[in-house]
Amino acid sequence: MLEFQFESLMAFLAMAPHGAYVWPVYVLGLLILGGLTWMNLRQHRQAIRLVKRQLEREETHES
């Protein structure tokens, strides 16, 4: 059942005759999933940085 359907790696990458349709879709999928992950990480970092700055401000205020 598990048999590589293409003769060579080049044939796999060409995926004749529809390589031009299949590969960009998967690349876009990767970009969107990766982009969302990156966005979440950035938002998280920004939120933490905001809290940090606030903490520093409180400390200088106290001293």
């Binding site: 979440n40 998280h44 939120a47 809290v51 606030q54 903490l55």
Partner: peptide, 27 residues
């Protein structure tokens, strides 16, 4: 689920930034 959880964590920190547990966590 991974993406939603990640986004939720970032939003929670942002909204709770005045809560003491967040300050503790960052500190």
């Amino acid at each position: 689920a991974y993406l939603v959880l990640g986004s939720m964590r970032a939003i929670v920190i942002g909204r709770e930034r005045r809560a003491s547990w967040v300050k503790e966590l960052v500190g």
